[in-house]
Design a protein around this nucleic acid. Structure first.
Lengths: 265, 265
DNA sequence: CACTATTTGTCCGTATGTATG
DNA sequence: TCATACATACGGACAAATAGT
């Protein structure tokens, strides 16, 4: 199968090149049957020797993504993404699953009360203990998101480990008497550390979509800090924009989808 | 200076670890003065030898990001981002600069008519020649975005290279008689290939925010394909959400900023 | 003031990966 | 494709510095 269990090189330069080429191909930058640049060309582009390019190519070929023929060159075999997996409707500005005949499942990786990392402490405005829960969300057995939530201990004491498995965090917070008011989100990109790489079944050093959300109550106090990491090949953030106004200035309006349903995370 | 010209290890595992640790620190996961895990601990976490961790640490130390003392451990020196550089207001659903006392400048890297890559051909619905322009956008000399635009040749023939330097692409398109109607955006993450890495002044293999936008005219024909790559440490996509509705269902409304101003790209 | 545990600093021989021709 | 020379990574051991007991 293509979408899972790739056999990337061990570590070193070969893997770095492999990941870059893999990223290019999966993104669909090359047309089907298109010949990639020659190995010597790739070698100078990436600043490595041909042997290193060759190792990366070996992995790509055994992945079934490219096909090499002496004299002809290397052609892309499976350029287009088979299934984008999950497309998140971003019209709602919340990662929200659309077209979900398939169900997602969550697995709890860890659950503990810890001292908050710097970023969390800054966001929640406290250096006191926080409850940290780490989950991995999968669709049809394929993991696509790695979620780390931090909640102040004072709030989190009202619910425990089994609650998290069954009830959305929002419900639990409201049950604690908190009034969810607003949230700030930041979207970024990051590299997969070994632990999340293992959880998401990919190579350490792969690119991940990073979404950070801080939820505040009506008093402006931070009540939840979410750090979500998504596999780009299995999860996308999409949105549509309509143009409004006729003059030279750019006026865009988001196309808002239905603002309900269960957030996918 | 911290924000630029880091001296990362050559290739290999050491650089991979270096990038991962750098990513962690710049993201602010560690508090100031906090001691990092011991080298031996990091070694087993990353699945490498201690010597490799040590090389990565050497680079981080000469970057001034950490400080090592024998016996004591390694502490984070400059954990917080000095200047988040550019914060893009995402309430408008378009990367749009807010609070821009500073000016950005663009540099044209390449300009040519080429056969469209697979993804572009699919989006624009044509395999005919397209005009490709590659720009790098900087703020105060620090590059933060790498932009590649593709426009069908039929439309692009009405303007040329110098036009692109002065006039926004939207104006040029409308001058060509095109009616800009709507757009689709996708946000993802990708790895920096050597060419964009050099243009953005970072190490090959770094994580980048990838934003793809396809603009359509009123006939539903694709008229522009934008592939934007952003340095996460100098560009962020932010948004605010307000909660509406009181019941258990999650209802969120984006806080829409003023939908004008010049798009930053 | 020792004593201990831990962590960085330094060295080694060996194995593997990479560059070059 | 191969063989050789070089660079890097590995695992271990030991010393020096630090912090706490």
């Amino acid at each position: 199968m293509v979408g899972t269990a790739r056999q990337s090189p061990e570590g070193g330069k070969a893997q770095r090149v492999y990941l870059l080429l893999l990223d290019d191909i999966l993104r669909g930058d090359h047309r089907v049957g298109e010949t990639l640049p020659a190995e010597s060309r790739l070698a100078q582009l990436h600043g490595v020797s041909r042997v290193t390019i060759r190792k990366a190519m070996d992995a790509l070929e055994s992945d079934g993504l490219v096909q090499r023929r002496a004299g002809a060159g290397t052609i892309v075999k499976s350029p287009v993404q088979p299934q984008p997996g999950i497309a998140a409707d971003f019209g709602t500005l919340m990662p929200q699953l659309v077209q979900m005949g398939q169900e997602t499942s969550a697995r709890l990786l860890s659950f503990a009360y810890v001292a908050p990392p710097a970023a969390v402490a800054r966001a929640l405005g406290t250096t006191a203990l926080v409850q940290r829960a780490v989950r991995v969300r999968s669709i049809e057995g394929a993991p696509f998101s790695h979620l780390t939530t931090h909640v102040p201990e004072a709030l989190a004491r009202n619910f425990s480990e089994p609650d998290l498995a069954t009830t959305p965090l929002f419900r639990l917070l409201e049950r604690s008497g908190v009034t969810v008011d607003h949230a700030d989100q930041t979207i970024s990109a990051t590299l997969a550390t070994p632990d999340v790489a293992e959880a998401l079944d990919l190579a350490s050093g792969s690119a991940l979509i990073a979404l950070t959300r801080v939820v505040y109550d009506s008093n402006g106090r931070g009540i939840e800090h979410l750090s979500a990491l998504y596999r780009p090949d299995r999860f996308r953030l999409e949105m549509s924009l309509n143009r409004i106004g006729e003059d030279g200035a750019r006026h865009w309006a988001p196309v808002l989808g239905p603002l309900t349903q269960s957030a996918a995370q």
